[in-house]
Amino acid sequence: MDIQELVSDVPVQGEHSIEGIDFITSGKQYLTFLLNLEQYAVDILCVEEIRSWEIPTKIPNAPSYIKGVINMRGIIVPIVDLRLKFSIGEATYHETTVVIVLTYQAEDTGRTIGFVVDAVSDVLNVESKDIKNSPAFGGCMQPQYIEGLINVGKNVVTLLNVENLQYVEKHAI
């Protein structure tokens, strides 16, 4: 297929080129996941991979929400249990418990950290204008981890700030 054909094949904004799959939109895509009954989302471009839960190697004297480290293809990746970090629900481990491995690439450094969540649910297309500011009160999550809120039907999804999440062990209370 030559370039010209490709160009004419690219769907215009909002148009779905392949049925059922949002091929191109002007907004960004977000991966949503569950912590207990609450829905959260992260930028899908930061998601390195989704792994099943495995028992990590403990880090001595680390905070309780740092479960330890695992070996991901030769990289030592720390595992953070978001349920413990944000005090949401119980930290139990069963079949749907997964680890979302996120990489945030800053200018010269990148960090890769795995986050334990109850389940991965969906991929959302969201225009930036649809991301609402979070009310500044309530909840036990520190505001720097919240990028905004997204309304999906009747539900509200909390969009997390991946950059700040990557340094979760640095700015604890």
């Binding site: 880090i59 001595p60 004297n61 680390a62 740092i66 480290v69 030769g74 990289i75 030592i76 990746v77 720390p78 960090r111 890769t112 950290i113 062990e169 640095k170």
Partner: peptide, 12 residues
Amino acid sequence: KSLKDNYQQVIG
């Protein structure tokens, strides 16, 4: 392997 790459220095 360094722990500092993705985490931080751990005492001990």
